[in-house]
Computed example of a mutant assay.
Amino acid sequence: MLRKPFKSPFLLSLILGFTVIACNKESIDTEDENELITSVKLNFTANGSTQTFAYSDPDGDGGKAPTVSTISLKPNTTYTMTIEILDESKNPVSNITNEVATEKDEHLFIYTPTPSSLLTYTYGDKDSRNLNVGLTGSVKTGAAGTGKLKVQLRHQPPVNGKPSKDGSTTPGSDDVNIDFNVTLQ
């Protein structure tokens, strides 16, 4: 039996179109990479006095273990808190704090105390879409005790030209993820 050649251009176009669509994977294009951060400083100010607690990892991931200060604050006290982040692998040292402030629409600091009664963090700054940033805020400590404070900087750049930052911790990736021990006494 002899077959006739395929003569329906519409049907052929439809089949080829579905084939191309099925093989085309959607690309997710993020526009920025994560920052290299070698030092994080938390500055707590109350009654005109500032205490600074630091994380330092001058050689970056791998190599020597980082050093992390224990945060020691007074119980039942309200502090103004600011954060400073640096890349000390560069000469001169790169102040990433300024970059985060400039790109605040793409960054979110998250402060998670364990136990949750240890302290309460209230954001003091917003981005252009009125979403939290976390470069500055206030901390209200709880009763005397110990615990941890997880400090995360979520890098949430646009994806395919659209903002990914939505006020939650979900989009993006960590530029910083540090656990500080905390003592309230």
Rank of each mutant, 00 (worst) to 15 (best):
Y79D: 05
V100C: 04
S128E: 15
S89V: 08
V93F: 00
S117P: 06
S128P: 14
N98Y: 06
K90M: 08
N95C: 01
T114R: 14
R129H: 14
L119A: 02
E84D: 14
E84Y: 09
N130A: 15
T114N: 15
L108A: 06
M81T: 09
P113R: 00
E84P: 03
I110K: 04
I85E: 03
E106S: 03
E106L: 03
L86H: 03
D127F: 09
E103D: 10
I96Q: 02
T122I: 14
T78Q: 14
L131D: 04
L119E: 01
T114L: 12
S89E: 12
L108F: 10
F109M: 03
N130Y: 15
E84K: 11
T112L: 10
V100H: 08
A101V: 11
I96R: 00
V93D: 05
V93P: 08
T122F: 07
T112W: 06
I110V: 13
P115H: 15
D105Y: 02
S94T: 12
T112M: 13
R129F: 11
E84C: 06
E99K: 00
T102W: 10
G124Q: 08
H107G: 04
I83H: 10
T102M: 12
K126V: 09
N95K: 00
G124P: 04
Y123H: 12
T112K: 05
P113T: 02
H107W: 11
P92A: 01
S116N: 14
N95M: 01
L108C: 07
E88N: 10
D127C: 10
N95W: 00
K104A: 03
P113K: 05
E88W: 06
E88Q: 08
H107R: 14
V100N: 01
L131P: 00
D105S: 09
E103G: 09
P113V: 02
S117M: 07
E99H: 04
D105R: 01
F109S: 01
D87W: 15
L118W: 04
K126N: 02
T114D: 15
H107M: 13
E99P: 00
S128A: 15
T120A: 09
H107T: 03
E103P: 02
P92H: 03
T120L: 10
L108T: 01
Y111W: 05
K90D: 04
